[in-house]
Design a binder for these strands. Structure first.
Lengths: 328, 328
DNA sequence: TTGTAAGCGTTATCAA
DNA sequence: TTGATAACGCTTACAA
């Protein structure tokens, strides 16, 4: 009493089995499944019926992949997941990537530690630079001619580069603070990374002397610890510029913990424009188009897979004035 | 002036090209790369040298996959990323999955919307049930004989089931509250989902009459809105039990916003045991072994791929008493 | 619209 | 330790 009927031997049915049972050729059967060329309705129905009766679930992806030279899998290098996605800004971007790729029939494979991914069937790879500059897989992918798209990272040869206007955004925030009368400004930076450089440049366009408090990841605890030490020195600053909203939220809470009013005693600026629902005040921040960035990334990936030339992209950002900054 | 030398024709070099140049057979060349059988050092070096001079980057994964009947790709169905990973409890688990799979040479593919993944080369699929009960891909995967591992979801036929002791954990927290003298307890539940049921049962083991405030995702805003409305009715409760720490943190902040002291006026219990760094108080919560859950999941996946029989797993949880609960 | 036939680039079996 | 050979299951010219 087998589920699928008439399976001649003890192995999974193949398209050839279906073809025989349907009484048509292998190529016609293939066309009936792929729709790549017209097949008469009668034939298609016969093929589908045969497939159903054999319990055939459609073309074997492994065989199809080899034949077509494509796996439908796109890798995304993010480092450790718990690090990469700790910052809520990472999600909307990857979400958008996934959505666009899904619609095109591609899947997104997380490359955590990127060694040993050499044997995986990847049609393209996205490097989403989260505080890292080097990836061991890069050379290998170059050798294999796998298209690469780099987000906010160094412009490695042969890669397509998706970025936002870090410098312009940072400068807009700095000007906003300058307009409010701030002159003594300090900044919390990201760990050495590519975005870092443009943002610091933007800040220094307005405040050449801005003091660097220290560098840390976009992580509440790390930012809080750094700022706590800094504020303990009773510094002579009226504003602190952060490189993410998570950092900024931590700074606001820590400032309050030390009896400072925000923005009365201290103005705090963020970056990203993500929600910080646990904070009862809207941050002044540089809003970046996270979903657009993800879509641009995915579209670049698809174009590169299709063999097209793709230009680098730089997306605009926008200052959003909230309640965490005010006059000196 | 080509980079790779001696490429006879205009196409990527194959293992056969390497074999010819090295003066050995195709099968020996394959062994030199895979190490599946011993090859003399001299031969291996000759092969590797030939590969290097041709710019051959190793066996084509697509061909290797077909021949071996494996892709090295494991899917994980999480729904929308921004939803699935909004709760920090999701990360350590997926992180552990990824780590174990990586070490075994497998990659993790995110199945967002799970339609249309039928053509992807998946060796196994993990269903991490984040507030969903149905997945359209299930039937298809059954038909393809793809091993499935379900985390905290329904025990579908043919799947391996990884779970934690929801009921025991919820009961332990309830007893703790009962010991503190609480008698009037309300609960915030998850959207209808599998874990939900065991946890509510555990709560009712101790407080059969516990009132349900409402159901929402493990999301700060949602929980806050729900509890805000509830507290506005001036309910006669002394403790609120939540189904996640994110919910619990939101409840604490909202209670304070309304002038209630936690735990003086209201005790709040959580679930998961994740960090809530923006909260200045440690939550009383049911700690679940997130990394263990991930590892158990990945190990079940690997065993199923290897064709082994695998038993279902239920992991223990532990009550951690923090500062968000106290005597009535 | 359908059929024939030739690969896609490996790995595994078997024999030498 | 190495070599000859046969698949793996499908897609796509090309022909009919």
């Amino acid at each position: 009493m087998p589920g699928p009927v008439e399976n001649p031997v003890d192995r999974a049915p193949t398209m050839a089995d279906v073809a025989v049972l349907a009484g048509v050729s292998l190529s016609t059967t293939s066309l009936a499944f792929s729709g790549n060329k017209p097949v008469s309705d009668a034939t298609r129905e016969r093929v589908l019926a045969a497939a159903a009766s054999l319990g055939y679930a459609g073309p074997n992806p492994l065989a199809s992949n080899l034949r077509r030279g494509r796996s439908g899998v796109v890798g995304i290098a993010v480092g450790r997941l718990s690090t990469a996605f700790r910052d809520p800004a990472a999600l909307p971007m990857v979400d958008a990537v996934s959505e666009v790729l899904d619609a095109a029939g591609f899947g997104l494979l997380l490359m955590g530690d990127d060694a040993a991914h050499a044997r995986l069937p990847l049609d393209a790879v996205i490097y989403d630079i989260c505080g890292r500059e080097t990836w061991t897989s890069y050379d290998d992918l170059v050798a294999r001619d796998v298209p690469m798209v780099v987000v906010e990272g160094p412009a490695w040869p042969g890669t397509t580069f998706i970025d936002i206007d870090h410098r312009g955004g940072a400068r807009a925030l700095a000007r906003h603070l300058h307009d409010l009368g701030h002159r003594r400004v300090a900044t919390l930076t990201l760990e050495p990374s590519h975005p870092q450089r443009g943002r610091e440049a933007g800040l220094r366009d307005v405040f050449p002397q801005a003091e660097v408090i220290g560098a840390c990841a976009s992580d509440h605890d790390a930012a809080q610890a750094l700022v706590s030490d800094y504020l303990a020195t009773e510094p002579d600053v009226t504003a602190i510029v952060c490189q993410s909203d998570v950092q900024a939220a931590a700074v606001v809470l820590e400032a309050r913990r030390r009896g400072l009013d925000v923005p009365g005693d201290l103005s705090v600026g963020g970056f990203d424009g993500v929600a910080t629902p646990w904070l009862d005040l809207e941050l002044t921040t540089v809003v970046q188009p996270l979903a657009d960035k993800g879509r641009a990334t995915a579209e670049a990936v698809l174009a590169r897979i299709a063999g097209e030339r793709v230009d680098d992209v730089e997306l605009p950002v926008a200052l959003r004035v909230g309640a965490s900054t005010g006059p000196v």
